[in-house]
């Protein structure tokens, strides 16, 4: 009651000041312009490197264009072609498999690490750093290191043979059955530490009293996790899932470095497919259409995540 009276008084004083100074129109207009002046340089840069190329790209998605001669309008022809080409559905399927497996894998491992390292271990800070280090290394560098490890004559197979598990050793990146899991494994290995940090931050937001009260009531580790920790970790889970979804949909570096999309296109993803159609096959219009499709898929996924986040907030 007191607050609303004060607010009304403040508003009355401000209106009186504007009337006294007679600056209503000009001052307000110039005050409104200030943010735009600050935003203009960034907007110019953003439009040059992002907005204009994206809009042009979206236009070319509806054309047949070889990058050399004038584009020819084909309407939705490129999109239809993607779904009728034999490799089109394969590319989409590989991408979805990677998205599902990576999102589940990286968040599960990240959460597991966070729960493990939340405890008062003497080495927890060292371990946290060790697990986080791969996330700050270039994905390309990580992929090349793993390519060496997973080579037929690489350290992994050598170690398996030394342990008497020679039958398990195989050309991991050359076999269609193992190449895609290998890529997902490398990605999960690299980014689990990053997701561990997200979940550690979430765990620190859970009040110790709540946990203690649950334990006094006789809750074991599983019940504590299921009914106390997990519900309060939902905002962190939403962020973790949203980030991992976007990363996995736009995956490019690791696939190019590890398998180049092979063997026989069995690890081709939307990202690598867009690149190859444009820069190897010279089909810029078709490539732009697939890229636009990728943007659409990512937007839908991100919108779903945002909706879930808002529901949590409310």
């Amino acid at each position: 009651m007191v607050t609303s009276v004060r607010r009304r008084e403040a508003l009355r004083e401000a209106t009186a000041w504007v009337r006294r100074t007679g600056e209503t129109g000009r001052a307000a207009a110039s005050a409104r312009r200030v943010p735009w002046i600050f935003v203009a340089p960034a907007a110019a840069l953003c439009s040059a490197v992002l907005l204009i190329p994206s809009l042009l790209g979206a236009f070319y998605a509806f054309t047949e264009w070889d990058g050399l001669t004038a584009p020819k309008w084909v309407g939705l022809g490129n999109f239809a072609e993607f779904f009728t080409r034999p490799e089109g559905t394969g590319v989409l399927a590989h991408t979805l498999v990677i998205v599902v497996c990576y999102v589940v894998g990286v968040n599960a491992v990240g959460l597991g690490l966070a729960l493990g390292l939340e405890r008062a271990l003497r080495t927890r800070n060292v371990l946290r750093t060790l697990f986080f280090v791969p996330a700050v290394v270039s994905p390309l560098v990580v992929a090349y290191v793993w390519k060496f490890i997973l080579d037929t004559h690489g350290p992994l197979n050598t170690a398996l043979e030394a342990l008497g598990l020679g039958a398990v050793a195989q050309p991991w990146l050359a076999k269609p059955e193992t190449a895609l899991p290998a890529i997902i494994g490398v990605m999960v290995w690299q980014f689990s530490g990053y997701h561990m940090l997200i979940y550690l931050a979430g765990l620190q937001g859970i009040q110790a009293e709540t946990r203690e009260a649950a334990m006094v009531d006789g809750a074991g580790s599983w019940l504590l996790f299921r009914h106390i920790i997990l519900p309060q970790l939902r905002p962190a889970i939403t962020i973790g899932v949203a980030l991992s979804t976007i990363i996995s949909f736009t995956l490019f570096d690791q696939v190019m470095a590890l398998t180049g999309g092979g063997p026989s296109g069995k690890t081709e993803t939307l990202g690598t497919y867009v690149y190859k159609q444009a820069f190897v096959n010279g089909q810029y219009g078709y490539s732009a259409a697939v890229a636009l499709l990728l943007v659409g898929v990512v937007c839908v996924a991100a919108a779903g995540q945002l909706r879930a986040l808002r529901r949590e907030d409310s």
Binding site: K147, F148, L150, D151, T152, H153, N157, Q170, P171, W172, L173, A174, K175, P263
Partner: peptide, 9 residues
Amino acid sequence: GAAGSSREA
């Protein structure tokens, strides 16, 4: 294991 070897290997 030739299918999975790198060119350098």
